[in-house]
Structures are given as structure tokens and as C-alpha cells.
């Protein structure tokens, strides 16, 4: 393994977002705060039906998770896209880096960005809520797994997209609906039966629910089922990234 090369690529991908931290860290924090202000006034102290939790507290883990997912996706997809447009991907191909090393570096950087954003958000939001950590392992497991999955989808999406329009399409029609409809703003128990069943096929639903479970100690899913689904989704994403990079999909003539 070329670990030093992998490390260098990882630092390259983290510097990319640290250099523009206003866009990548401050902006998502601001967005989440605005959401919360709006919901705070709109919902007051209302509780989530069927749960002994204030709706406002219910929202916080979901919003944090959503920010993590979106930032992980943005980190890999934008880097690959810019790399493609500026033709810099050739340097990755010329360097003695295997597909596994490239995958590890990109995904680790995506996770790093997601975790930094999550910590910043939690610190900013802490004073306004009673939410606290109940099960740290759940928060870490679902947070990191979610970031890997989204970082991986960003990598694949970046390879697939020919233009920024393709990327926007992917974002608006697949990524946004999947994250939005997976229970950030509501408990699935509030949904009609059909939707509840459908959501059990959506890995993001397990991610958000599991992550929230780590804070609120209540959840909509069966924990062991969630762990299995999430683990499979994570490993498949890593495998897909490795495989596509290995074959040079859409990158190499």
C-alpha cells in the first residue's frame, strides 16, 4: 500500500474544504439555525405524536444528520467534478495510487468534513435544546456510515456527471428527496401505511432514525435490522467506488 500517497490525497481533499470554510462549514451551520428558528416559532412546544419528545428536540438530530449527509456528498462530488473539468484527474491516474487508496482518501475526507460540520452544528445548537448524547456509539456509527455512503455517492455521481447540470439533476431528483423524505422533519409513524413500508427500503431512513436514537433514546426502527441494512449499504458503496475507480469508469478512454 502507498499509505503516504493515500494520506497526501486525504490532506488534499480536506484542505479543499478547510480553505473555503465560510462556504463549507459556516454556511451549513447558518442554514440549520434558520430552520430551527422557523420551527421553534411555528411549532412551539408541541410534541411528536406517539413519542414523549418535543418536536423541536426531535428535529435537531435530523437536521445535523442531514447537514452531514449533504456535506459528505458535496465534498467528493465537487472535487471530482472540478477535477474533471480542469482535467486534473489525470494526475491521480498517473500516480501510483490504487483504486482502494483513492477510495479511502476521498471517503475519509468526506467523513472528516461531515464530522466537523456536525460538531459545529451541535455546539451552536446546544444552548437552545435539551438534546444530549444517550448512546455515543449509535451517533458515531450512523453518522460515519451515513457520511461514507453519501461521500461514496458523491464520488460516483461526480464520475457519472458530465457537467454541473448533471450534478444538479442528481442532487435535486435523487439526493434531496431521499434525505428529505427519510424522516428528518417527522416521525414515520405520522405517515400513511404505504409510506411507512416504503421507507423501510430507504437506507437514509435508517441512518437518520438511528442517529436520532443516539440522542433521544427513541426510534422508529428495529435496531438490529437497522445495523444490518446500514452496514450492507456502507460496504456496497465502498465496493462500488473501488470497482468503478478500478475500471476507470467514465474517466478513462
Amino acid at each position: 500500500m502507498n499509505w503516504y500517497g493515500c494520506w497526501t490525497l486525504y490532506t488534499r481533499e480536506t484542505r479543499r474544504f478547510l480553505n473555503v470554510n465560510m462556504q463549507t462549514i459556516v454556511a451549513p451551520a447558518l442554514t440549520a439555525i434558520m430552520y430551527l428558528i422557523v420551527f421553534r416559532y411555528a411549532m412551539g412546544d408541541r410534541e411528536v405524536p406517539g413519542m414523549d419528545v418535543a418536536y423541536f428536540d426531535f428535529l435537531i438530530p435530523g437536521l445535523v444528520m442531514m447537514a452531514m449527509l449533504q456535506n459528505a456528498f458535496a465534498n467528493t462530488s465537487s472535487s471530482i467534478m472540478v477535477g474533471k473539468l480542469m482535467n486534473v484527474q489525470i494526475f491521480l491516474m498517473m500516480a501510483p495510487l490504487s483504486a482502494l487508496e483513492v477510495t479511502i482518501a476521498f471517503l475519509a475526507a468526506a467523513v472528516t468534513r461531515a464530522v466537523i460540520v456536525a460538531i459545529v452544528l451541535l455546539l451552536v445548537l446546544a444552548p437552545f435544546t435539551n438534546v444530549h448524547i444517550e448512546h455515543l456509539w449509535m451517533i458515531l456509527f450512523y453518522g460515519i456510515a451515513g457520511s461514507i455512503i453519501m461521500g461514496g455517492l458523491g464520488l460516483i455521481g461526480g464520475m457519472w456527471s458530465k457537467t454541473f447540470d448533471d450534478m444538479a439533476l442528481l442532487n435535486n431528483f435523487i439526493i434531496m428527496p431521499l434525505t428529505f423524505l427519510s424522516g428528518v422533519f417527522y416521525s414515520v409513524k405520522q405517515l400513511p401505511e404505504v409510506w411507512q413500508t416504503m421507507n423501510h427500503f430507504n437506507p437514509f431512513f435508517y441512518l437518520i432514525d438511528g442517529f436520532r436514537h443516539g440522542f433521544l433514546n427513541v426510534g422508529d426502527t428495529n435496531p438490529s435490522q437497522a445495523i444490518i441494512v446500514v452496514s450492507i449499504a456502507t460496504l456496497s458503496t465502498i465496493f462500488a467506488c473501488w470497482y468503478l475507480w478500478h475500471t476507470g469508469w467514465k474517466l478513462k478512454e
Binding site: Y4, G5, W7, T8, L9, R15, N19, V82, F91, P96
Partner: peptide, 15 residues
């Protein structure tokens, strides 16, 4: 994103 000196350092590291 980078200046020439960093680009060279990164390139060396990737090798």
C-alpha cells in the same frame, strides 16, 4: 485550489 509549490508537494506525496 492550490499554488504551484503546494501542487508540487502534493504530487510528490501522491507518488
Amino acid at each position: 485550489f492550490f499554488n504551484p509549490r503546494d501542487i508540487l508537494k502534493i504530487m510528490s506525496g501522491m507518488f
